[in-house]
Design a protein around this nucleic acid. Structure first.
Length: 300
DNA sequence: CGCCAGGCCTTAC
DNA sequence: GTAAGGCATGGC
């Protein structure tokens, strides 16, 4: 076992584990008190992640982040929670927009995440018409039923299944596990990746809009889910997933950005949110609206 | 009971 | 290319 810590002093712009992990971007983490996504913090709870055959437990402290792990967790935490992002620069460069500025000010320390592409693809296929707590439950269930079991500190953890592991599932099994109509989508997509038909990783080398188009070849993946995979796992910080909350934001605050279809509206709101870091802006606005924290008046 | 949740698929035009 | 309807499940 290894232990270590990461000091707040090194993290430009700060870091908030609760906001970053529990803002609906990543569904891979669990919390030692079992109360993740319940909307409240617990300074005594550890965030736990099973990934790439390793287990990482991390807990925020007054001076930063303390961790215990099966391996050196420093590079894992820095990559997965984007601790080396210059958040101060990103916030400072954000457009002078009332709702966006309010969101950035209200949730300081919220960072984007970088999750593994296959797991992110499956998680957001599951996300269709589903609340974040239940997406987390589905992902956790898939890990428990099909993922590799890992032991650490006397506890059992489950890595998210590989495409090959998940491809052994049947639609009936996944329906029994509560995935509903998403069950065949998950099975078919897992088989596509396991069989080498396509891999979400292949989208990484493409220009943004071509990458989004590429990902929609997977079953259960439309423009919105594709944008989530690009933003939360493939490093496309310009991606702005148009989900129900962002569509509400467009209707209430940016009506001129509604261009009638996904591709054109996406371009307009991406431009409004500052272009290259528009995905960061999207995640703050999403969280701001979803938690009911917004006080900015709608336009007109 | 009805409504909604980080939508997508099929079908019809 | 766009529009309408169906789809599982659980919490309120």
């Amino acid at each position: 076992m290894e232990t270590g810590s990461i000091s707040n002093d090194e993290l430009v712009g700060g870091f908030d584990a609760f906001l970053t992990i529990e803002s609906g971007q990543t569904y891979r983490w669990t919390r030692s008190d079992g109360a993740i996504y319940a909307g409240r913090q617990n300074p005594d709870a550890w965030y736990e992640l099973a990934i790439d055959g390793e287990v990482v437990r991390a807990r925020p402290t007054e001076t930063g982040l303390k961790w215990r792990s099966t391996t050196d967790a420093d590079p894992i935490l820095r990559r997965r929670l984007r601790l080396d992002d210059d958040l101060e620069r990103i916030v400072a460069a954000a457009p002078d927009d009332p709702l966006l500025q309010e969101a950035y000010a209200a949730h300081r320390g919220l960072r984007l995440v970088t999750d593994p592409p296959f797991g992110t693809l499956i998680a957001f296929i599951c996300s269709s018409q589903m609340r974040v707590e239940r997406i987390h439950r589905m992902v956790t269930t898939l890990a428990r039923e099909y993922g590799t079991e890992l032991e650490f500190d006397g506890h059992t953890y489950y890595d998210f299944p590989t495409p090959e592991q998940l491809a052994t599932a049947t639609e009936a099994e996944l329906r029994d596990l509560g995935l509903g109509y998403r069950a065949p989508y998950v099975v078919e997509t897992a088989r596509m990746v396991a069989d080498g038909v396509a891999h979400p990783e292949d989208a990484r080398e493409l220009p943004y809009e071509e990458a989004r188009e590429y990902l929609t070849r997977f079953v259960g993946v439309g423009d919105k889910v594709a944008d989530c995979v690009l933003l939360f796992s493939l490093g496309f910080d310009e991606a702005v997933p148009l989900d129900t909350w962002i569509k509400t934001a467009i209707a209430d605050y940016y009506p001129d950005c509604d261009r009638g279809n996904y591709a054109k509206t996406s371009r307009a709101i991406r431009e409004r949110f500052g272009g290259t870091d528009a995905g960061y802006a999207q995640t703050y606005v999403f969280h701001h609206l979803r938690t009911g924290a917004a006080t900015t008046e709608p336009v007109e």
